[in-house]
Amino acid sequence: MRFVSVAAVAALALTGLSSGVAHAESAPGCGPVTQIGKTAYIGGNASSAWASVKQFKGCGKNWAYVYVWDSFVDRVGDFQVRVYVEANGQKAGLKTYPRNRQENWSEGTNTLSQCTRAVGQMVDFVSSETYWHTTKTEERC
């Protein structure tokens, strides 16, 4: 009996650990999507960033995604995000979210046949109300 409860606790703990990395597996109105290219970071590198920027494909579309890290939210607490897919130098699927939203998706774009990248922009209202920090993923063709 004790073995079962230890196994159940271990399974629950593993589920909790994996939920932190699964934020970006389903685009709005699409379902499962696949990341293409490497993750880019706003405000630093992989260990000190404010947010992650990723590009996905799924449902016949490209998607850009920005996730603002808990550490930034806890420290700053007043920010805003814009996210879009850049195709041939043009903004596609641009969305600007209300303040302090952690998970941010672009609109799905009909750009799978083009060279694209995800673009994430973030303003930190504590340090500057007008400066948007911009990060782009690598271009994918």
Rank of each mutant, 00 (worst) to 15 (best):
S5I: 11
A8Y: 01
V9S: 09
L12Y: 09
L12A: 12
A13Y: 06
A13C: 07
T15V: 05
G16D: 10
S19T: 11
V21D: 05
A22V: 03
H23G: 10
A24L: 11
E25L: 03
A27M: 07
P28N: 05
C30M: 06
C30F: 05
P32C: 00
P32K: 06
V33Y: 01
V33T: 04
Q35D: 07
I36F: 08
G37S: 07
T39C: 08
I42T: 03
G43K: 02
G44N: 04
G44L: 07
G44P: 04
N45D: 15
S47G: 12
S47F: 15
S47Y: 13
S48Y: 09
A49T: 12
A51I: 06
S52L: 12
S52M: 11
S52H: 11
S52T: 15
V53E: 02
V53A: 02
V53N: 02
K54Q: 15
K54C: 09
F56T: 00
K57H: 11
C59M: 12
A64S: 00
Y67H: 13
D70H: 12
S71G: 08
F72M: 04
V73F: 11
V73G: 13
V73W: 13
R75G: 00
V76N: 08
V76M: 02
D78L: 03
F79N: 05
F79Q: 01
Q80C: 05
V81I: 13
V81A: 03
R82I: 01
R82V: 00
Y84H: 05
Y84M: 01
E86L: 02
A87W: 05
N88W: 09
L94P: 10
T96D: 01
R101T: 02
Q102G: 03
E103Y: 04
E107R: 14
G108I: 02
T111W: 12
T111C: 10
S113H: 14
S113I: 09
T116M: 11
R117M: 10
A118C: 04
A118R: 06
Q121V: 05
F125S: 03
E129C: 08
T130Q: 12
T130E: 13
H133S: 14
T134V: 08
K136Q: 10
K136L: 05
E139Q: 15
E139V: 15
